[in-house]
């Protein structure tokens, strides 16, 4: 099983549309995993059935038991996150501010504070509209995206891939350069970088590639909206050459990305033959690189 992870650093480059297109080209030979748990959008294109749902817990949260609390305020004194506040004369935990350090629990003399597991979201195992398997998740509002939920969906995806003998796991990676993207990339065989020829596109591509490099994962790049700025495009190509990143494809700006999305289709299903061909060729290039 080969694991292809699609990342972009910057939002709005077409990462999810391209991932979904690859997934629909791979059909039953792949498991699709959406690791963009903060703003998971791929389900809008692949329309999974949300058949199996599990709550996801991450980290801990302080809770004050009002029956045992003597209202001494020691907890509020030691909390560095201003997470213990007076409400109608009683100390309560502000759940959005609590980081779960547990200092309050340790100084509470009547032991009125307990640290409980924090509900941080949910993950789902589904069948997409093509009948392929998909694992996806939703992070709760204000929850910390530690990468643990990303690791969880990847693990579930891998289990399905090996049980059903799939050839590919195609992963829509997390944005940014922090822990979640590290978790998305961890264990990957190929990192597909999707970028656009803009100043911030190149800036973020360079930053995210630093992360890929640390993992020594084979990398390739699709430059989307390539005709938007030819000179910036050249700059990106130079960067790819310098870093020996495979230039998988340049895709010109195409309204079909949005149109297909509006029709809840992937771009490889959409009636735009030239675009479809570019994606098929991209997938072939990636497969060849992986020796499949």
């Amino acid at each position: 099983m080969k694991e292809i992870v699609v990342i972009s650093g910057k939002g709005g480059t077409g990462k999810t549309s391209i991932t979904a297109a690859l997934a629909s080209l791979a059909k039953e030979s792949c498991v699709v995993v959406d690791c963009d748990v903060d703003a998971a959008d791929m389900h809008l294109l692949l329309q999974p059935d949300f058949a199996h749902k599990e709550d996801f817990y991450s980290g801990v949260l302080a809770h004050i038991d009002p029956d045992n609390c003597r209202n001494c305020g020691r907890c509020a004194q030691v909390c560095r996150f201003d997470a213990i506040v007076l409400q109608n004369g009683r100390y309560v935990v502000d759940e959005l501010s609590c980081e779960g350090c547990g200092y309050c629990e340790k100084v509470c003399r009547p032991k009125a504070i307990s640290m409980n597991e924090r509900l941080a979201g949910a993950w789902f195992a589904s069948q997409t509209k093509y009948g392929s398997d998909m694992v996806h998740a939703k992070l709760g509002i204000g929850a910390e995206n530690s990468g643990k939920l990303v690791a969880k969906v990847k693990k579930e995806g891998k289990a399905i891939a090996s049980a059903k003998n799939k050839s590919f796991m195609i992963v829509d990676g997390s944005p940014g350069i922090g822990c979640p993207v590290v978790s998305s990339l961890s264990g990957a065989n190929f990192a597909l970088l999707v970028t656009e020829p803009t100043l911030s596109g190149l800036h973020d591509l360079k930053r995210v590639y630093e992360v890929v490099k640390k993992f020594r994962i084979k990398a390739g790049c699709i430059i989307n909206k390539a005709d938007l700025n030819p000179s910036m495009c050249e700059e990106i190509e130079t960067f790819l050459r310098e870093e020996s990143i495979l230039h998988v494809k340049s895709i010109p700006y195409n309204k079909a990305f949005t149109q297909a999305m509006v029709e809840a289709k992937t771009i490889s299903e959409y009636h735009d033959e030239p675009l479809k061909k570019l994606l098929e060729e991209s997938f072939e290039t990636i497969k060849n690189t992986l020796g499949v």
Binding site: D38, A39, L96, L139, I141, G142, A143, E144, N145, P175
Partner: peptide, 8 residues
């Protein structure tokens, strides 16, 4: 971007 703790 997003809805996690830094946004808040």
């Amino acid at each position: 971007p997003g809805t996690s703790c830094p946004v808040i």
